[in-house]
Amino acid sequence: MSCIENYNYEILFKGTFKECSNYIRKNFKDIRYLKAGEEVIKGVLLIGKPPIPVAYHGDFVIFPYTKPCYGTFVLKVPLSESSRGEKDNKDKKGGILSILKFW
């Protein structure tokens, strides 16, 4: 299960990454532009071509999120839930063998 499934998100829009970026730019005012790979909420990294628009509206954060088989969605997630995610593996000890599974 992906980290985003830990959150009570609402899908606002579905399309290509560019369409989703445009949707956020057109519909929200308080926007920050972040890089791919930055952690937008705990455990969830931004995916896409930078600059990636992330909007803040009331108590919600709005950002594009891509699934490999299903395309990109604009998600609205309550900021109050933003500490639910999994711990980042970058602090994990034991190197590559502890992170990967091998056939």
Binding site: T16, F17, A36, G37, G43, L45, L46, I47, G48, K49, P50, T66, K67, P68, C69, Y70, G71, T72, D88, N89, K90, I96, I99, L100
Partner: peptide
Amino acid sequence: GLKNRLEVDAIVGFVHNDAAVNYIIS
């Protein structure tokens, strides 16, 4: 894998849809 940040020398990605473009760039 986007959270693991492993040391690699090169990345090779297959692209046939918009999502794959986004993942490889990320």
